[in-house]
Amino acid sequence: MNRIATTFTALKAQNKKALIPFITAGDSDPSMTVPLMRELVKAGADIIELGVPFSDPMADGPTIQRSSERALKHHVGLRDVMDMVAEFRKTDINTPVVLMGYANPVEAMGQENFAAKAKECDVDGVLIVDYPPEECASWVKQLNRYEIDAIFLLSPTTPPKRMEQVAKMAQGYIYYVSLKGVTGASHLDLSEVSNMLTQLRSFISIPIGVGFGIRDGATAKAVSVLADAVVVGSRIIEEIEKSPKTEVLANVGNLLKSLRNAIDESHGSASCR
């Protein structure tokens, strides 16, 4: 079993839900990323989604776009991001790392090169926002050759027939986009999420994570009742953005702990690891 599956199995045994924070690699400067990843794990992250900066992040809102721009000021490229994962692995061999980003940096490196290098650096899963299943049969093959999970998005606009098709290709976990919009938006409709997840479960056996629009303990808690994992991105990046450099780690750690506690509360487990 790979790390992602192992993580979800272990959580299930403890009746807990996964907390998946997202940060952009190289934000706000490259030396911050590995310490931040370690802090996130310490504060209760089960899986880390590490964003690959891109000049044109079409599916993201202003917060994540700004984080990309800060990283790009330091010319953080895909190779640098992979090196950060390798560095992180020196002290953490258990926490799954999922790279998340856009197609063009992968295309520039070459799909096969990318998969080989990702394996070398011990990446567990990859989600490329603008590689929908229709366009990436060869891509999934490359990833699987190197035992890396191809993670896919589903959204409120995905019709049932397509859910079934995507479910056949999806590995690791499904990332369900909770709203029609970009990352960082704030109009999460819980009853709609609940309806969609019920539908999704009839097609999908792997865990389902929900992201977009989760901004505090209350929404994290409510989502964790419905889903297997809660993904938080923009809110963490806001914390990085507004904290003085010396306080970033502590502030992000505290934020994540509060989310962890909120999620665990709803499942009768008070521990915060």
């Binding site: 079409m58 599916a59 197609a103 926002v129 603008d130 590689y131 929908p132 229709e134 366009e135 896919f152 998005l153 589903l154 959204s155 409120p156 606009t157 995905t158 019709p159 397509r162 995507v166 986009v177 029609k180 919009g181």
Partner: peptide
């Protein structure tokens, strides 16, 4: 049918836009 001109074109968008 999928909008390809040889290796070019296609539909490289996030899931949210696929149905539209």
């Amino acid at each position: 049918k999928q909008g390809h001109f040889g290796p070019y074109g296609g539909v490289f968008v996030a899931e949210t836009l696929i149905s539209a």
